[in-house]
């Protein structure tokens, strides 16, 4: 069984803990939700797992199938099957959707596969494969292109940072299909979301508050906890002692 494990990970900037005492296990073939209010550290956790510059753990280890990947580069982690969907994917001047999806020809895929994947994320191949991945794409279109790119990578671990942001509510089923597709192809999905419909797809969830894992467990329970207590929490990201004792 593949396993991604965070072992007592801390991320400190200056005197402030961005992430504190993170212990988490992500098993293969499952869907995990990361919940938390704004500023709780969800995206930081995603960047830390992916190895993004500036998010190197101050202490602790990240293990993939027992191998310590804490000091591996982004590229090396990606080659081991990790990938990240950014909350706001960056634009690329002069690259067509097709060039972007194939990473300039690095990924060998057939025309049929490109058409299939674009259709899968709700983009007509005729209209989009030769469009530029630049500022002329709307936020939603850009997000769909990024989802298509993730699918073509066939990742073992896909960290999706708010895949639904920028996507109209009528297209949530597309996001669900993307997550389902990754899992059916043997991957694990770690999804950061504020949307209940997306969180409910997961089997397990972690609730982050002020950089720490406040609680974890079955998604139903964590979602209920989040809805009951975090939505109207008067001390956002400053959990009370009572909450810390859960």
């Amino acid at each position: 069984m593949w396993l991604l494990l965070l072992d007592n990970v801390n991320l400190v900037r200056g005197n402030k803990y961005i992430l504190k005492d993170i212990n988490a296990v992500f098993e293969t073939g499952k869907i995990y939700a990361i919940l938390g209010t704004n500023g709780a550290g969800k995206s930081s956790l995603a960047y830390l797992i992916m190895g993004i510059n500036g998010y190197e753990p101050s202490s602790g280890r990240i293990l993939l199938d027992g191998e310590d990947i804490t000091n591996l580069s982004i590229t090396d982690r990606a080659k081991k099957g990790l990938t990240l969907l950014w909350q706001e994917p960056v634009r690329f001047q002069g690259l067509t959707v097709e060039q972007y999806l194939t990473l300039g020809g690095k990924i060998k895929v057939s025309n049929h596969q490109i058409e299939f994947i674009l259709n899968f994320v709700g983009l007509s191949p005729n209209l989009y494969r030769h469009r530029m991945v630049d500022g002329l794409l709307s936020g939603g279109e850009r997000k769909r292109v990024e989802l298509a790119s993730i699918l073509l990578l066939n990742p073992r671990y896909a960290i999706l940072d708010e895949p639904d942001s920028g996507i109209d509510i009528m297209s949530l089923s597309m996001i669900e299909n993307v997550i389902d597709y990754i899992v059916k192809h043997g991957g694990t999905v770690i999804v950061i979301t504020h949307r209940e419909e997306i969180a409910k797809l997961s089997q397990e969830a972690y609730l982050l508050c002020n950089g720490s894992i406040l609680t974890q467990g079955s998604s139903d329970r964590i979602i209920k906890y989040y809805k009951d207590r975090c939505d109207e929490c008067s001390h956002v990201n400053l959990p009370s002692l009572e909450e810390m004792r859960i």
């Binding site: 993004i52 510059n53 990606a78 950014w86 002069g94 690259l95 060039q99 990473l103 300039g104």
Partner: peptide, 22 residues
């Protein structure tokens, strides 16, 4: 980093970005 998170090395990613630009 977006391209590196898809498996390109820094050199390959730089090359692709530059190719797009010019």
């Amino acid at each position: 980093q977006t391209l590196m998170a898809k498996g390109l090395t820094e050199e390959e990613a730089t090359e692709l970005i530059i190719k797009g630009l010019i």
